[in-house]
Design a binder for these strands. Sequence first.
DNA 1: GTATAGAATGTTATATTATAACAGTTTATC
DNA 2: GATAAACTGTTATAATATAACATTCTATAC
Lengths: 152, 152
Amino acid sequence: MRERHRHNQCIKNALEKAERVCAEKSLRLTPTRRKVLELIWQSHKPIKAYDLLNQLSSDEHIEKPPTVYRALDFLLKNHLIHKIASHNAYVGCEVNHDEMDSKFFICDQCAEVKEVCEPKLDRSLLEASKKQGFIPNQTTIEIHGTCAKCAR
Amino acid sequence: MRERHRHNQCIKNALEKAERVCAEKSLRLTPTRRKVLELIWQSHKPIKAYDLLNQLSSDEHIEKPPTVYRALDFLLKNHLIHKIASHNAYVGCEVNHDEMDSKFFICDQCAEVKEVCEPKLDRSLLEASKKQGFIPNQTTIEIHGTCAKCAR
DNA sequence: GTATAGAATGTTATATTATAACAGTTTATC
DNA sequence: GATAAACTGTTATAATATAACATTCTATAC
């Protein structure tokens, strides 16, 4: 735990950002949406839709899939979370999406995901696209391997 | 159709490559595996597992999911096909996998996928990884957009 | 040529991921 | 307070994928 970052701060930042974004765009961060975002931000590991569903449910009340998928759709559409396609799982968005699409480093040891912006990589992607005469719109860049922490 | 490439040749090449690879590694390209590979190569569009299953089935005999998933596993493991994670669908492998991982350009108009090797892009990916202290193992690079043909 | 082990296939069942469709409720605005 | 749009509840089902175990096939050793 020694080197662990102050994760509470991540959660707090994420929720604040969400409130700001929603306020700016007149969107409603309803209790379910907020709760789902908070659950996703419990870690930097992608979480599955049905795990969220279980965590949303209590002994008294079991939530149904559309509840969580609707919240996920909202959060995805507004760039507050991302879907990791290679895992069918969801992580909080760590970057500013004025920039280009995200790239993800996914540790196969500890499962943590690091989202990065890499203008150089963007340029390479654009260049490669141009070479194909391809007009890129949205990218899925997921790099699996071993993170710095686990490599030590 | 005027500019259409000779797709029969693609299928033929793919099957020949598969036979060669299997011969070299003492693997068995059994009838089901061969048939699945052939069905996947009917086009350059990713095909879904259950579509393959339907095409494998006849009025007399309906195949079951494990049949197709086992064939897919075999073909994936031996780099004869790839899974497009963002679509849960499968395409034939067009490149030589002595090289690094594949990158896919996926046209959202016509659905065709072009697999490319881009050493420059590989270098950018490696560089970005190094910057994170990340040791890359396997990448999912899927660029969605509009292909040259559809852009015209 | 037969015994044998490993690979491949058949079969049933079920797990996992995601959406459709429609009814009811809440919210913002007029 | 009426209204429309957004949001939520609920039931059902679609789409994707695997587990587990029985059976058959194939290559090799004897």
